[in-house]
Simulated scan of single mutants.
Amino acid sequence: MRDKKPTSASASGRFQKGQSGNPKGRPRKSKTPEARKSAFDVIVDRKLTVMKDGVQHELSVEEALLHKTYQQAIAGSRAARRAVLKMILKREQALAEKAPAKQGKIEFGIEHDPENANDALVILGIARRYSEGPEDQYDRLKLEPWAVQAALRRRRGGSKLTEKEIGEIKRTTWDPETLIWPRGTRP
């Protein structure tokens, strides 16, 4: 009688109890940084050639996306504005973490209150502060012409601007004479 060789598989094709069907095991994941990159990382790291004022510039896809987000925020997109505000907050937090610890509180000019809408308009460059005289006790703002122009461009349909509305726009805008008014409106 012949001696049987011990095999890992029985005659039925199944492995014996306690023996692995895959003796080498699962292959390990590659530890190279290139192998761990997601598809998004690969795209964001690519360079684009962009023409600006007749000159070629190289931008990463990430820089191009940020630039487009800024343009959309300026054009009035609420989602883009939220994204820009989040980027600003994230940057401010990163700068605060890197800054050396303050020994005492030193005040430089006007402090901004994040809960104050006027401060937000000033920080974003949508408005500037002004005063009507030395005894003016109010926080007065005038809107930047680009912001007013963007709002006028976004006006869809509706009625024509009234004389009162035109006067209010002129009163609350820096350099209102630079504005391009909607068709049918006489400033």
Rank of each mutant, 00 (worst) to 15 (best):
K170G: 03
I123T: 14
K98N: 08
L48M: 15
P182M: 09
A94T: 13
L143R: 02
Q19L: 15
G157C: 14
D113C: 00
T7H: 01
V44N: 09
A79Y: 04
D136C: 09
Q103W: 00
Q71N: 12
K102L: 08
F40Y: 14
V148L: 03
V122S: 06
K86I: 04
E111P: 15
E132Y: 10
P145Q: 04
G13I: 09
L89W: 01
P182E: 07
A150S: 07
A127W: 05
E132G: 15
H67L: 14
R14T: 15
S8M: 08
V122N: 08
R36K: 15
T32L: 04
P23A: 01
Q149P: 12
Q56W: 01
L161T: 00
H112Y: 13
I180P: 14
W181Y: 10
P176G: 11
V122C: 10
P134L: 06
R2N: 05
K37V: 02
D136F: 04
R36C: 10
I166R: 03
A9G: 08
L95M: 11
E97T: 07
K4A: 04
R82A: 05
A94H: 14
E63C: 05
A147D: 01
E163L: 13
I88S: 13
T172E: 04
Q103S: 01
S77G: 06
I106F: 03
T162D: 14
P182H: 04
E165I: 06
P145A: 08
Q149F: 02
G109D: 04
R26F: 12
S12A: 07
W146L: 06
P134H: 01
R46Y: 10
K52H: 05
K5F: 04
N22C: 09
E177Y: 04
L121V: 01
D41V: 11
E168V: 02
R91G: 10
T69Q: 15
P6Y: 01
D119H: 12
D136L: 07
D53P: 03
Q71L: 10
S38W: 03
T172S: 07
A11S: 11
D113Y: 00
S30G: 09
R171Y: 02
K160T: 03
T7V: 01
A120Y: 09
A75W: 00
A83N: 03
A147H: 00
D119G: 08
S20P: 15
K86V: 05
P187F: 02
K37N: 06
R46Q: 15
K90E: 10
L89R: 06
R154V: 13
A75C: 02
L65I: 15
L152E: 05
I180R: 15
Y138I: 03
R36F: 09
V42N: 12
P187V: 02
S159H: 00
G54A: 11
L95W: 06
L59F: 11
K29T: 11
L141W: 07
G158C: 14
N118T: 09
D175R: 03
L179W: 05
R186N: 08
K142A: 01
G54R: 11
G76D: 10
W174Q: 11
G54N: 10
L66A: 12
G13M: 11
R153H: 13
K68D: 09
L85Q: 07
K52A: 04
